[in-house]
Write a protein that binds this DNA or RNA. Structure first.
Lengths: 251, 251
DNA sequence: CGGCGTCTTGTTGCATACAAGATATAAAAC
DNA sequence: GTTTTATATCTTGTATGCAACAAGACGCCG
């Protein structure tokens, strides 16, 4: 079994890293959160798929540490709802059921709508930072860099929370958006990147005008689009689907 | 080295009891989340204070396992924002700064208000369950059981999310309310239990009437009360306070 | 009496060893 | 040929050992 399948530690990649810890913390010994950060980033970029197996030994070799550190990172990622463990079989990137997917996106909608409704509106500097982010999204879309595109489109929401000045919200959204990206991969989202990017711009427009209620409404719509673009019949429930199909008819 | 300070395993669960059959989960070997659950519960009940040290060895003895399992639990709790580690000194229950406290409560407000605004309204069965919870709160208040009272008042919000049928929200709220309880302990909250309980009832009333907007408004008010009841000048920033006081005046 | 280096003790950080179980492989029975 | 059984291999689960470091104790010297 070649560890080629797992592509995590390929480049420094710290474009919009959520937690800029050590400037040269490329060593998992000096930055205990490196492993998690890399896995989150890889998931957000679509470089690791839901259901993918993450062997402790593989990761240990990739990051040049012992299984202990890998395991500790996995424990944290488990608590964040990104990976899960199957006893004595291995660690796997979460593969949310349809129900879990709905709950996750509902939670995101609650959090982001609530955030826009309750938090004070951003100043011009913040608006500018957000606009720059959207420009980066457009650039990635035009340039065809799928990984960067996926990452930036998801990370917009984390940026929004960061811009509003609340790291707690940002951290929560980081995990929820990561899970949403995994859901989108699992259920073959057909949501157009252009459309997403445009909706992000619209939200910023509303914020700039000081209309937080409208921004919240647009966010609600945006996340409903995200969910609507999912094909809940495509992935892991093929089995359920098959079973249901075969149980009913006997001819 | 007396572990008297740490009161987590309320009933002295015996370390090595070969004969005793554990009714599903009092053994940290069979339920890997027992340690976390106990610590969360203890925090929510006010039985462990912010800043309290949680030694790996102590916990290992209390739960009858090796340091490895304790450490893994701590990693998960760290990811959930409940404990933090000081290098080679030990694990400590988080002691949020004033700023972190504000961000935490703001995040809660965003999440809970958003939840009530965006989620569909509960049916009568759910209302009944919530009412029962509030009755339990009243009973604990009347009975004078401080731990139970603190636990139930905090757990109401988790219950609400659970009742609305979203485990993702419930899980997020569990962590946020735990942190809020720690904040309240740290900053000597003067929020009256009666008042809190009454506000919970009011929220349920609004939900029963189908007025989710009003419920959201009441939740917003409730959480503002929670924050307002804090004395941000009481705890760890005594040092800052002193410094500021001594820097300004020279007479 | 107070300041300072040294030493001792305790605690976490990390790696490793081994046990327990799951999956894959191969052999055997029918 | 198919099913079953036995075995080999691989992976995680848990404990333990040792090193690195922090903080307090102690004696020394000014």
């Amino acid at each position: 079994m070649s560890p080629e399948g797992v592509v995590i530690a390929e480049r420094p990649l710290r474009a919009h890293s959520p937690c800029m810890r050590d400037p040269d913390g490329n060593d998992a010994h000096k930055n205990p959160h490196l492993i998690e950060d890399r896995i989150i980033h890889a998931a957000l970029s679509g470089r690791i798929a839901p259901g993918e197996r993450l062997g402790e030994k593989e990761l240990a070799e990739i990051f040049g540490v012992s299984r202990t550190l890998v395991r500790e990172a996995m424990m944290r990622l488990q608590a964040r709802g990104i990976v899960e463990v199957s006893a004595r079989r291995g660690w796997f990137v979460v593969e949310p059921s349809v129900e879990e997917a709905r709950h996750t996106i509902d939670a995101r909608r609650a959090l982001e709508v609530g955030m826009l409704v309750t938090i004070s509106q951003p100043d011009t500097g913040m608006i500018r930072a957000l606009r720059e982010h959207v420009r980066a999204e457009q650039k990635a879309i035009a340039g065809g860099d799928r990984g960067e595109r996926s990452y930036l489109l998801g990370h917009f929401h984390v940026c929004l929370a960061e811009t509003l000045g609340n790291p707690v919200l940002a951290s929560l959204l980081q995990d929820l958006t990561t899970r949403t990206v995994l859901i989108a991969a699992l259920y073959q989202s057909s949501h157009d990147a252009h459309e997403s990017c445009g909706e992000h711009g619209g939200i910023i427009d509303a914020l700039e005008k000081g209309d937080t209620t409208e921004a919240a409404r647009l966010m609600d719509v945006h996340l409903r689009h995200v969910e609507k673009a999912l094909n809940y019949r495509s992935a892991s429930n093929r089995l359920d689907h098959l079973k249901a199909a075969l149980q009913g008819s006997s001819g």
